[in-house]
Design a protein around this nucleic acid. Structure first.
Ligand SMILES: [Zn+2]
Ligand SMILES: [Zn+2]
Ligand SMILES: [Zn+2]
Ligand SMILES: [Zn+2]
Lengths: 135, 135
DNA sequence: GCATCTATGTTATGTTGTAACACACATAGC
DNA sequence: GCTATGTGTGTTACAACATAACATAGATGC
């Protein structure tokens, strides 16, 4: 039994997830494509199809405000509560966190409005601690 | 003294804002361009440049998860606290609200992390009340 | 064998967003 | 008047992001 694979990935899914995991930060689909050309990737759809599945599995998150994708920071994660992201505009660092209290308030609001919530996007832009410190 | 114009808009800005205001919902930049061809618009930059200013003025919001823009629902608004959006995936309706408590919690988190928050993106996807009722 | 489902490969196209350069217009300083 | 400066504008070309449509390949179940 595998400990770190809730989903058996196909070859392309594994390659794409590997790229994101190795990168340790967000990559665009086309950046992934370029990284994987030496593995035989030729067309954007090969990347997008794998990303669709990985996002569905909860192993990868899409950053809407960057048009980019990032591996979930919970290693071997098979999905968790809604995530939020703090994105540094100086260095590009992305920090994932899970603000359950925030999500609870948003869910309360949607319920009070009769809105059936499917998913949330929370992305914070600013400057990270080390970039603030260094000027 | 004008009551509804905190900013004197240029011709192009007024046209773009008018389109969004009349639409009563989100439009992509290219949809705006098509609407404004009869007013002499020929190129996407004419739209994007106006949108940049309108967003800066706080009169228009960008919806990252739709790659679209929407007039602020506060008429004559010159900017307010961070907004959030509930987006119906059935009918496309977008409801703007201002969840101060949520923003406060997010701000607390960023401050505890030394992250200098510049702006927030909060977008909720789901099904609106009337679409839930009718389907 | 045959239907069905999923994954994959490939070409072409559609959608969203900018770079670079030129020009018009207003305002301020000389 | 005449420059300098800043901002708004117009235009061409291009870059970046995403999908449609069609073909092929392998696995599973009957
Ligand atoms: Zn995650
Ligand atoms: Zn940083
Ligand atoms: Zn608003
Ligand atoms: Zn609806």
């Amino acid at each position: 039994m595998r400990t770190h694979a809730q989903h058996e990935l196909t070859k392309n899914q594994a390659l794409v997830y590997g790229s994101l995991s190795d990168a340790g930060g967000p990559l665009t689909a086309y950046a992934i494509l370029d990284l994987l050309r030496e593995n035989g990737f030729r067309a954007p759809l090969q990347v997008y199809r794998a990303l669709d599945k990985l996002v569905e599995f909860g192993m990868v998150h899409r950053l809407e405000s960057l048009n980019a994708f990032v591996a979930c920071s919970h290693k071997g994660c098979a999905g968790h509560g809604s995530a939020a992201f703090a994105i540094c505009e100086k260095c590009g660092d992305v920090r994932e966190f899970t603000p359950d209290d925030v999500v609870r308030l948003l869910k309360d609001w949607t319920e009070s409005q009769g809105f059936a919530l499917a998913r949330t996007t929370i992305e914070l832009r600013g400057t990270c601690k080390s970039c603030v410190a260094s000027g």
